Computed example of a mutant assay.
Amino acid sequence: MSSVSELVLPDGRRLGLDARGYLLDWEAWDAAVADQMASAEGLTLGPAHWQIIHLLREYYAAFEVAPPMRLLVKEVGQRLGPEAASSRYLYRLFPDGPAKQACRYAGLPKPVSCI
């Protein structure tokens, strides 16, 4: 049985989270969700973070699954250029794991390929 918690946003909204901290309803997401999650982990989201978050949401909207790490690196490279096409670049932005942490901030389910 999994436990459910919630994220309380500054505006008073309460959104359900699964036991690992992922939103239960990806469509309930907005930028305040990402900011709140990142802030709770001591991270301030900048333009580079937002590029990855929006890329993940667009990919999920199109394919109903978050991209695995290798595909995420490829997509980032195609959209943002070769200097961003590395797992090292993504880990600098999302040190707890680009696929897991970025997907959580993007309001998406945990990627299937992540443990």
Score class of each variant (00 low, 15 high):
3 S>I: 13
3 S>F: 12
3 S>K: 13
6 E>Y: 13
7 L>V: 09
7 L>I: 13
7 L>Y: 05
8 V>M: 12
9 L>E: 06
9 L>G: 02
10 P>T: 14
11 D>Q: 08
13 R>P: 01
14 R>D: 08
15 L>A: 02
18 D>G: 02
18 D>Q: 03
19 A>Y: 07
19 A>I: 08
20 R>D: 12
20 R>F: 01
20 R>S: 06
21 G>C: 04
21 G>R: 01
23 L>K: 03
24 L>G: 11
24 L>K: 08
24 L>A: 13
25 D>Y: 10
26 W>G: 07
27 E>F: 03
28 A>F: 00
29 W>H: 06
30 D>Q: 08
31 A>Y: 13
31 A>N: 12
32 A>Y: 04
32 A>Q: 08
33 V>K: 02
33 V>L: 01
33 V>R: 01
33 V>N: 03
34 A>Q: 10
35 D>G: 07
36 Q>S: 13
36 Q>C: 10
37 M>P: 00
37 M>K: 04
37 M>D: 03
37 M>H: 04
38 A>F: 00
38 A>V: 05
39 S>Q: 15
39 S>I: 08
40 A>V: 04
40 A>K: 14
41 E>H: 10
42 G>D: 15
43 L>P: 00
43 L>A: 05
44 T>M: 12
45 L>I: 10
46 G>C: 07
49 H>N: 11
49 H>C: 08
49 H>K: 05
51 Q>R: 15
51 Q>N: 11
52 I>T: 05
53 I>V: 14
55 L>R: 01
55 L>V: 07
56 L>D: 10
57 R>D: 13
57 R>S: 06
58 E>V: 00
59 Y>S: 12
60 Y>S: 02
62 A>K: 15
64 E>Y: 11
64 E>W: 13
64 E>M: 11
65 V>Q: 15
66 A>D: 07
67 P>R: 09
68 P>Y: 15
68 P>E: 15
70 R>P: 00
70 R>K: 09
71 L>R: 12
72 L>F: 02
73 V>W: 02
75 E>N: 06
75 E>C: 05
76 V>P: 04
77 G>Q: 15
78 Q>W: 05
81 G>T: 08
82 P>R: 13
85 A>M: 03
85 A>V: 08
85 A>T: 07
85 A>H: 02
85 A>L: 02
86 S>L: 01
87 S>D: 14
87 S>T: 10
88 R>Q: 14
89 Y>L: 07
89 Y>H: 14
90 L>G: 05
93 L>A: 06
94 F>Q: 00
94 F>V: 01
96 D>M: 08
96 D>Y: 10
97 G>I: 06
98 P>Q: 12
99 A>S: 09
99 A>K: 02
100 K>L: 14
100 K>P: 03
101 Q>E: 07
101 Q>M: 09
101 Q>T: 03
103 C>M: 14
104 R>E: 13
104 R>D: 14
104 R>V: 10
105 Y>T: 06
106 A>G: 09
106 A>C: 09
108 L>Y: 05
108 L>H: 04
109 P>L: 12
110 K>T: 10
110 K>C: 13
112 V>K: 04
112 V>W: 03
112 V>I: 10
115 I>E: 15
